[in-house]
Design a protein around this nucleic acid. Sequence first.
DNA 1: TGATCAGTCAATTGATATATTGAATCATGT
DNA 2: ACATGATTCAATATATCAATTGACTGATCA
Lengths: 222, 222
Amino acid sequence: MASVPDLPTRLLFVQFAAVAKALANEHRLMLLQLLAQGERSVETVAEMSGLSVANASQHLQHLRRAGIVTARREGKRVLYRLADDVVVTLLNSLRQVAERNVAEVQRLLDGYFRERDSLEPIGSEELLERMRRGTVTLIDVRPQEEFMAGHIAGAINVPLENLKRRKGKIAPRHEIVAYCRGPYCLMAYEAVSELRRRGFKARRLKDGYPEWKSAGLPVEIS
Amino acid sequence: MASVPDLPTRLLFVQFAAVAKALANEHRLMLLQLLAQGERSVETVAEMSGLSVANASQHLQHLRRAGIVTARREGKRVLYRLADDVVVTLLNSLRQVAERNVAEVQRLLDGYFRERDSLEPIGSEELLERMRRGTVTLIDVRPQEEFMAGHIAGAINVPLENLKRRKGKIAPRHEIVAYCRGPYCLMAYEAVSELRRRGFKARRLKDGYPEWKSAGLPVEIS
DNA sequence: TGATCAGTCAATTGATATATTGAATCATGT
DNA sequence: ACATGATTCAATATATCAATTGACTGATCA
């Protein structure tokens, strides 16, 4: 009764495993989060992730061979991007499984990310509704270059660095909502803490730009 | 401007990578497909996958440490099962990425699985509607033990082995729909081919039991 | 044409993963 | 208590992966 799998089925599993192998490295996952913001050059993601250019290049090629990202040449530089939106779904379910089932992740969330709950995240439906009524100011705390590559429609860019150095003159009449790269990017957490310290009403958007974009909600470029 | 990720964020990526590492092996993916049918003992999945018991045990423990499966002891045996339904989603998006992006998978699908399209898969909505009207006979071609552990409500069990040996006396008035373990399990394909060779009207269900179950559609046990 | 910049390739080293083997548990029946 | 069956553990050899280094290629611009 031993229904040992036949050859073609085994080959398929080998291919699926190849995709999983490409995801099975913390640096590549970090590169994917960066690419989830939009197209980026090798040098850019190398600098943002703290990897050497050669190392980042090899990781990106690994991801490309697995069909997770694609690359195109533009002049001197090579620009990488996620292959399609299914990749965002894949990364999200990976995150969900880790979050729900791995004790270590729970510990990290409960510890370092303790403020998570106290910062009352707002959902996308509620944000859309309040944007329509104009009762909220939406800020994107990512660096300017990421903002310019694409952001939530109606958001204004206040990079976290500027916010902390009080460079932007923020005096909104309404409550502030901050967002960044996604649920595990800490920038929006920090922004909300900082704003509250200064006496503003501030909340965090539950998800980040990649989730918003992949949900088909309105975005802008530039 | 090098926004190198901070420590807690890096630790989270390490944890996500650990989950991905657990998926990054063809044998473990095969074990997961088997466990997607329901709870199974180490010995059972070892036999079904063609792995040695010790090897299967170690792979299963790897999956357990990653929070992808859980185990419980029942007498002499240890029964493993998927940790939750998010795992099914994760495996499906992994499959989708591989399917959409990897040339090798395309080749396998177009070659060995050539009959795929000619076998006109039926969707779950249409199947439900026709089951309600009674205009279809639904057969589950998985082995009896898998059928007994859970199957689509209203299905009858005709294991592929029996079907091929003409052991079951099939004389349905209606069209036959066959299903098995999922989109990459070949048993339903073979069953439909065989039935058509004998002159029956037969189609394949688009997805398999795990997808049906995880979609919350009606199932039965025993 | 040559200099420069962005990225890739190849070779090396150290670190991880995998399958096998045989011994060690742990619960059960005699 | 002892024997048995099911699973896990420990040790090993082989294979694969990751980061570094320096050389190489391709596109741009003086």
